[in-house]
């Protein structure tokens, strides 16, 4: 099967991904990076997980009813991703913009595999996705994550992996689920050359680390 993961994309723009579990601080970092890029006069665009015009509404509805099995769950998110990829991300990359991705295919590889789909299947499902120029992974231990999530959004049915029947106790279920997700991410860190950053560092320290890497990338002439 053809797999794009062995070669970088050939678009003039830059594809920068930030990955991590819920509550790892991805969105905060994306926003800071975007602001900095604007100051430096680079055109940047953000694309977030599950925001396509085509299908994000249907995903929310289905999740409300808690009626998704693993394959359906996976395919719905792949539809969302593909719609954004074709309508927003690739056109922006072609136009030479810097595209900042809040989650990318790796999120699916982690979540869907934890839900029981085969790692090879879901990687093939996304094999048409361009390989990012750089992937940052915000690594957070489960304990710290739990506190952040409980303090902000609260425990959600799917984020707690309740759909896979790990435990009827929300807290316990969340803990087991997120630990499994973290395990998948750490396996991928090597597989896909993630730049792993300690999510416990301060917001500014993380931002500076990301900024340095992006600066290097831009200075290396990655934007064509």
């Amino acid at each position: 099967m053809t797999n794009n993961y062995t070669k970088k994309h050939e678009y003039p723009g830059l594809l920068i991904v930030i990955e991590g579990t819920d509550g790892s601080g991805k969105s905060t970092q994306i926003n800071k990076l975007k602001d900095w890029l604007a100051v430096e006069s680079y055109g940047a665009m953000v694309s977030e997980w599950k925001t396509s015009a085509l299908i994000s509404g249907a995903i929310d509805q289905a999740k409300e009813k808690n009626l998704l099995n693993a394959n359906t769950f996976s395919l719905l998110y792949a539809s969302d991703f593909t719609d954004r990829l074709e309508k927003n991300i690739i056109p922006a990359l072609k136009a030479g913009l810097i595209v900042l991705m809040d989650r990318y295919t790796y999120t699916a590889y982690a979540r869907d595999v934890v839900r029981g789909v085969k790692p090879g299947w879901v990687r093939n499902l996304y094999n048409f996705a361009p390989t990012p120029d750089i992937v940052f992974y915000l690594d957070m231990p489960v304990k710290a994550l739990m506190k952040r999530i409980i303090a902000t959004t609260g425990l959600d049915y799917y984020e707690s992996g309740r759909d896979i029947g790990l435990s009827t106790d929300f807290y316990k279920s969340f803990k087991i689920y997120q630990a499994r997700i973290l395990e998948e991410y750490s396996k991928m860190a090597h597989e896909f050359n993630f730049i792993t950053i300690d999510g416990n560092l301060t917001i500014n320290t993380i931002h500076n680390q990301i900024k340095e890497r992006v600066k290097e990338l831009i200075n290396s002439g990655a934007i064509k």
């Binding site: 085509l54 299908i55 394959n71 359906t72 539809s79 593909t82």
Partner: peptide, 22 residues
């Protein structure tokens, strides 16, 4: 007319997966 060949394919796969399991 919002669908590309790939999203056309994926949406039908979603439908199929749902009916298969349900």
């Amino acid at each position: 007319n919002m669908l590309s060949p790939r999203t056309f394919s994926l949406l039908h796969a979603v439908d199929f997966a749902d009916r298969l399991e349900q």
